[in-house]
C-alpha cells in the first residue's frame, strides 16, 4: 500500500436527473495520507457528507474515481463494498446508531463477531474510558457515553480508517471534548486514518489537515502545524 489512504480524481455525484438534478460533488480531487486525522469543513450542502459516503463505501460516484490505497472503490459491486466496509472502515455517526437492545459491550461485540482479528470488546471500551459502563444499555447512558461506545464499536475491528460524520454534532461542549479525546487517542495510538466531518471550525485545530468544501469541490487545503489537545478547544 502507498502512503496515501484515500485519493480521488474528479469525483462527481449527481442526484436525480434533468432540471431537478442536484450536483452534490463536482469533480472533487483530494489525497489523504495514511495515519493522519483530517477535518472536513463546509456549509450544509457543500458535499462533505456525499464525499464521506463515497469514501466509506456507502454510496457510488456518478463519475470520477476514488481509491482506498490501491483499491478502486468506484467500481466495486455491492457485495464488495460490504466487504470493504466490514474489513477496513469504522464509522461514527452523529446520532450514535447503537442497537438499543444490546449493552455497550454487546454493541461492540456485534462488530468483533464478524471482523477478522478484532480486539476484545472490553479493550475497545477501555480505550474510550468506558470500562465501568460495559453492561449498560444505550438508554442508560449519556449522549457522550453513547458516542464513545460508537467509537469503541468502530475501532474494535482495528479498521484502517475511521470516518466520523458530525461526531460531536449532538453533544454539548464538555461531552464533545471527551469524544474528540477518544478519537485523537485512537489516531495517535493505533495510527488509524481518521476523517471527521464537522460544521464546527474549531475542531480543525486538533487535526493534521483541514479540507474545506464548497459547492461540491475542495476549495482549500491546509496542513496544521500547531495541533492542540481536544481539551484546549472550545466552542
Amino acid at each position: 500500500m502507498t502512503s496515501i489512504a484515500f485519493r480521488t480524481e474528479k469525483l462527481a455525484k449527481v442526484y436525480g436527473a434533468g432540471p431537478t438534478a442536484v450536483h452534490a460533488l463536482r469533480g472533487a480531487d483530494l489525497e489523504l495520507p495514511l495515519g493522519e486525522m483530517t477535518v472536513l469543513l463546509g456549509h450544509s450542502g457543500s458535499g462533505k457528507s456525499t464525499l464521506l459516503n463515497i469514501l466509506g463505501g456507502l454510496d457510488r460516484a456518478t463519475s470520477g474515481k476514488a481509491y482506498f490505497g490501491d483499491l478502486e472503490l468506484t467500481h466495486l459491486k455491492d457485495r464488495e463494498l460490504t466487504r470493504y466496509r466490514r474489513e477496513h472502515v469504522g464509522f461514527v455517526f452523529q446520532f450514535y446508531n447503537l442497537v438499543p437492545s444490546l449493552t455497550a459491550r454487546e454493541n461492540v461485540a456485534l462488530v468483533t463477531e464478524i471482523a477478522r482479528g478484532p480486539m476484545p470488546a472490553e479493550e475497545a471500551l477501555e480505550r474510550v474510558n468506558l470500562g465501568a459502563r460495559m453492561d449498560h444499555f444505550p438508554a442508560q447512558m449519556s449522549g457522550g457515553e453513547q458516542q464513545r461506545v460508537a467509537i469503541a464499536r468502530a475501532i474494535a475491528k482495528r479498521p484502517r480508517v475511521l470516518l466520523c460524520d458530525e461526531p460531536t454534532g449532538a453533544l454539548d461542549i464538555q461531552t464533545g471534548v471527551t469524544v474528540l479525546e477518544a478519537l485523537t487517542g485512537v489516531n495517535n495510538e493505533m495510527g488509524t486514518t481518521t476523517v471527521i466531518i464537522t460544521h464546527n471550525a474549531e475542531i480543525q485545530r486538533i487535526a493534521h489537515r483541514t479540507l474545506v468544501m464548497a459547492d461540491g469541490q475542495i476549495v482549500s487545503q491546509e496542513v496544521n502545524q500547531n495541533r492542540v489537545q481536544p481539551s484546549e478547544v472550545s466552542w
Binding site: 456507502l58 460490504t82 466487504r83 466490514r86 474489513e87 464509522f91 455517526f93 442497537v99 471482523a115
Partner: peptide, 16 residues
C-alpha cells in the same frame, strides 16, 4: 430499519 441500516454500514451483509 435504522438499526439494521446501521449494521449494513458496519459491514454486515444483507444476508446477515
Amino acid at each position: 430499519a435504522r438499526e439494521l441500516a446501521s449494521l449494513r454500514i458496519l459491514g454486515f451483509t444483507r444476508l446477515e
